[in-house]
Nucleic acid binder design. Structure first.
Length: 679
RNA sequence: GCGAAAGUGGCGGAACUGGCAGACGCGCCGGACUUAGGAUCCGGUGGCCUCACGGCUGUGGGGGUUCAAAUCCCCCCUUUCGCACCA
């Protein structure tokens, strides 16, 4: 919406009251909140957001009786988390939408003026009111209510900052102990009654002179029989007292609202309800489910649902009395479908029910769920809700639908989220046509860690394309050699160059495997594969196999058994490990290599720790923490031998000569640091 | 305002448990091959000083802990994300 109109066509957008269908997700609010504690393989960020979204707050509801003429008593119920401050409640504030406001307007001496002021608040932009962009304002209704604890009358005001749809839409204002109420009271000259004194204050808080509200803990004062209690235990005690007196009770309030699923559009699941003039609302019988969308539809832009214009769809017999009835024409929010599709995936051809519980018991919960960051709250909370509903229905046995979660970042271009409305999209079809789906996929995996947003660059994609070409040339060139190798490899004695390639191969397998699982660092997995390819090119050059950049295959009979063996091992592993990133290309290469059965039947390569281990290691030597030399030593060198070698190194000695060696730190097989003193 | 995460070359990013900062890629520079190259291959590439060997410096800024800090602690700055009058 832009300036009260549709952002695309400019049509006027207006609020209307409508009949809507809701799912009672609030019934699961506590359970959804508690379940968060068990989601230890979800990002903390998502858990925090869900906690905020559910927004549990403990407090109390308290009834203030309104002074009215007439027999029926009228109450204003407020929600407060600080019932301990109720003796300082000097005003009751109503949201402009509160139901009593209209009655007060009618009974007011100047109904028109009253109504105008209410209307002014109500017409303030909703978002502005919610975010506090508009100034906090209010006016006195001229009515009073009784504070049930003090028994004193307090004025009732209407205030634009009171939220109509949270709690009861009415609050008690305690200016001395709530900053918003304080500012409001000072602005309109309302009384500030201190009822909490901080325990450690050198000067007591004074309502006449204080410059901001005191919201901290302390001791109750001016609070009748509760005076002297600490704020910690007063809340529960006073809530109990309120209940005993019949004026309130402790309660838990949630920010989470019931889920409004009604949509007046065609593309959605029909809500399976039938309106019968005689029997009322009737659910569509189980045997008639699911209600399917009619094929014939006209989009008129009239404002009601397109379904409402199709008599064959709307007119049905009541399942209860058989009389003429009307089918509900609202469809459901598409989030409804995405909340349980993963269960349907376990049993996609089932014609009689949504899914077979046995199948879902076998497959679910989802081990590892990857989705966009934009679904961190709604989709994931709805799915968790469905999981609970299904569990209560006996259809699933697990508590949470997704064991491990990764939320992937969005694609940015020129620093902004890529979207049609911003006009900065890159057409994936064009990219695929030019570079292939594999290059595009590889680029997206390589350029950034998956949970981060991805900054699009054309040159980056070209780089991935180049890499795939490089792989293609290499593998097709060595294919005849490799295809001839099968079974036992590398049992022949190897020289240093061959051993180095084998080592690189096994190190790469180790790295790529752990980068995929459990680390899910896809970008570093790709870079490990790039390193392997670089080494393979160097190896081929070293072996004099062929000029680079040609597409000519190497003649198999000119290659030694050792060379063919290590090459086969490296290239097989390369193609297998690259296949999740570039599946089409690798499938084809696999065939070139003469491997049978396709990649789906191949097993992931395994590394041999002994082969992956280096013959020699390079150990840096520092003097006072600064790098002064490197030692190439045997892998199994002892700390003492390493220490001696470090001290004997000429370039190290030039920094230690004439100084006293205070200490030598040896980190096994990793580093030596010589600490010296003196000039 | 509250909360969380993050700040590393020209750019995207790497550095797993405190142990050689800058892997890998992009870009750029040089070379080879070539009629040609916007193809391919090889080499170089944080900054400063130096012909060179080498030295100094460097992970947002400032302090601290440590033999050793991008990494841990404190303060500050910036950015991003979330929440945002929830009584």
């Amino acid at each position: 919406m832009v300036e009260g109109g549709c952002w695309r066509c400019g049509s006027r957008v207006e609020p209307r009251d409508m009949e809507q269908w809701f799912l009672r997700i609030t019934r699961y609010a506590d359970d959804l909140l508690d379940g968060i504690e068990t989601l230890d393989a979800w990002p903390d960020k998502v858990l925090t957001m869900q906690r905020n979204w559910i927004g549990r707050s403990e407090g109390a509801r308290v009834r203030f009786s309104v002074d009215v003429d007439g027999a029926e008593p009228v109450y204003i119920e407020v929600f407060t988390t600080r019932i301990d401050t109720i003796f300082g409640a000097t005003v009751v504030l109503l949201a402009p939408e509160h139901e009593l406001v209209d009655r007060f307007a009618v009974e007011a001496p100047d109904p028109e003026g009253f109504g105008r002021r209410v209307q002014q608040f109500r017409s303030q932009d909703r978002t502005d009111r919610l975010t506090g962009a508009v100034e906090k304002e209010g006016f006195d209704t001229g009515r009073t209510a009784q504070n049930p604890f003090t028994g004193e009358g307090v004025p009732i005001w209407v205030a634009n900052f009171v939220l109509a749809d949270y709690g009861t839409g009415a609050v008690m204002a305690v200016p001395a102990h709530d900053q918003r109420d304080f500012e409001f009271a000072r602005k309109y000259g309302l009384p500030v009654q201190v009822v909490i004194q901080p325990a450690d204050a050198s000067e007591p808080v004074d309502g006449a002179t204080m410059e901001s509200a005191y919201a901290g803990p302390g001791t109750l004062v001016h609070s009748g029989e509760f005076t002297g209690r600490s704020t910690e235990d007063a809340a529960a005690f006073m809530a109990t007292a309120a209940e005993a007196r019949g004026v309130g009770q402790a309660t838990v309030q949630f920010r989470l609202k019931d889920w409004g699923v009604s949509r007046q559009r065609y593309w959605g699941t029909p809500i399976p309800i039938i309106h019968c003039p005689a029997c009322g609302l009737q659910p569509v019988p189980y045997a008639d489910l699911p209600v399917e969308l009619p094929d014939v539809v006209e989009f008129t832009g009239r404002g009601d649902s397109p379904l409402a214009q199709i008599p064959e769809f709307v007119n049905v017999a009541c399942p209860s009395c058989g009389g003429a009835a009307r089918r509900e024409t609202d469809t459901m929010d598409t989030f409804f479908d995405s909340s349980w599709y993963f269960y349907r995936y376990c049993d996609p051809t089932n014609e009689t029910e949504p899914f077979d519980p046995e199948r879902v018991r076998y497959w679910a919960p989802v081990d590892f769920y990857i989705g966009g960051v934009e679904h961190e709250i709604l989709h994931l909370i709805y799915s968790r809700f469905f999981c609970r509903v299904f569990k209560d229905l006996g259809r699933v046995v697990h508590d949470e639908p997704f064991t491990k979660l990764l939320t992937q970042g969005m694609v940015l271009r020129d620093g902004a989220v890529m979207s049609k409305s911003k006009g900065n999209v890159v057409d994936p079809d064009k990219m695929v046509a030019r570079f292939g789906a594999d290059a595009l996929r590889l680029y997206e995996m390589f350029v950034a860690p998956p949970e981060k947003e991805l900054e699009w660059t054309d040159t980056g994609l070209e780089g991935s394309y180049r890499f795939l070409n490089r792989v293609w040339r290499l593998v097709t060139a060595v294919a005849p050699v490799v295809a001839a190798v099968s079974g036992d490899r590398g049992s022949l004695p190897l020289d240093a160059g061959h051993r180095a390639l084998r080592r690189k191969t096994h190190q790469s397998i180790r790295r790529v495997s752990s980068d995929l699982d459990p680390r899910v660092h896809l970008n570093t997995a790709v870079s490990a594969l790039m390193e392997l390819v670089n080494d393979l090119y160097a190896f081929c050059e070293q072996q004099g196999l062929a000029p680079h950049g040609t597409t000519e295959a190497y003649p198999a009979d000119h290659v030694s058994g050792q060379t063919a063996g290590v090459l086969a091992e490296a290239v097989d592993a390369l193609v297998l490990m690259l296949s999740p990133f570039a599946p089409h290309l690798c499938e084809e290469l696999w065939e070139h290599l003469g491997r049978q059965g396709g990649l789906v039947t191949a097993t992931w390569p395994e590394f041999d720790p002994d082969v992956a281990r280096a013959d020699e290691i390079v150990v840096p030597v520092q003097v006072n923490g600064k790098l002064r030399g490197r030692l190439t030593v045997a892998t199994d060198i002892s700390d003492d031998a390493l220490r001696a070698a470090a001290r004997a190194d000429p370039s190290v000695q030039s920094h230690t000569d004439g100084r006293t060696i205070a200490r030598v730190v040896v980190v096994r097989r990793q580093l030596v640091n010589i600490v010296v003193k003196g000039a």
